[in-house]
Nucleic acid binder design. Structure first.
Lengths: 160, 160
DNA sequence: GTCATTGTTGATCAAAACGATCAACAATGC
DNA sequence: GCATTGTTGATCGTTTTGATCAACAATGAC
């Protein structure tokens, strides 16, 4: 039930590219931000590009940027591009159907379809834009917390 | 995001054993019911046995039966036994935690935890007993439908 | 137009996981 | 004893995973 390393790296790469705004984002920037193996990242960017999720440009001022607005890139589409079906068994996948043993039991088949529907519902409704926004909020909150604890520490020092 | 063939076969094997009541169920019965590769099934039964999900007995009248009541065997425990973590990334697994790349992004980490929670919620709340009951209902309904269409067909024949 | 920079492509590779098989062995019941 | 059935451990070919590299092709700066 696991996604692959390529899937995880693909998500992070898209986040790095999205956070760079409209600017062309170099492969090295992604490596620096998330510590992805550079040669492996090549392959991952290629797959994202051929799926249209990112666009690329060569040359000295080249790099990568989103292939369409972040609000139109669902995380489901990212994971499907990198790892294939979201479904726990092929027989229960709507996008990549294939026969598989559990079809012999209607009860299991129905159960696993519920799982696939639940996963798809979460990942289809989350876009890269949502992720970027949350990442920003989390960072702001963390900064506020850091300032807060400094202040509280100062207060304690002042009291003692 | 997929479970393995062993996971699918494991589910079916347990269903066959559960449907056999308290009787010792032979490996061959499972093979006959669900067409599982016999030698592979050996390995699967072994894993289910060492996890305590089934008990076994050797000899002429030997076989397998459930290790505890069907109502106390969750499908989650079956899949964990055969395929490991339910979570999409190791870093988000409560039972098998390990570091993984997505931890670098709190937003992705939180999203994938939601996925793992949704999957776990479905599979933890479904027991083998539920599956057996549904399988029975489905069969009964199918039989009723068959009888129904025979009747309707007879009616049509009578009318024409 | 040269040159440094950066992406593109395809091949290749080691290691792990997957799906499966088999032979030798150990109980059990008749 | 003997047939039946589970137990164990080894083995094995294939595919997937995770990763690297060398040769190539744009692009922009000078």
């Amino acid at each position: 039930m696991r996604m692959t390393a390529a899937g995880e790296y693909g998500c992070l790469a898209l986040l790095a590219i999205a956070e760079n705004g409209g600017e062309w984002c170099k492969r090295q920037q992604i490596v620096d931000r998330f510590d992805v193996p550079p040669a492996f990242l090549e392959q991952i960017l290629r797959r994202l590009a051929s799926a249209g999720l990112i666009a690329s440009r060569r040359g000295a001022s080249g790099g990568f940027r989103l292939g369409r607005p972040a609000s139109q890139i669902t995380i489901a589409s990212v994971i499907r591009t990198m790892d294939g079906p979201l479904a726990p068994t092929r027989s229960v996948s709507t996008n990549f159907y294939q026969p598989s043993p559990v079809e012999a039991s209607d009860a299991f088949h129905a159960l696993f379809r519920r799982v696939r529907d639940a996963v798809a519902a979460i990942l289809e409704s989350e876009t890269l834009e949502d992720i970027v926004a949350k990442e920003r909020n989390i960072r702001r909150t963390a900064a506020r917390r850091r300032r807060g604890s400094v202040d509280r520490a100062a207060t304690r020092r002042a009291r003692s």
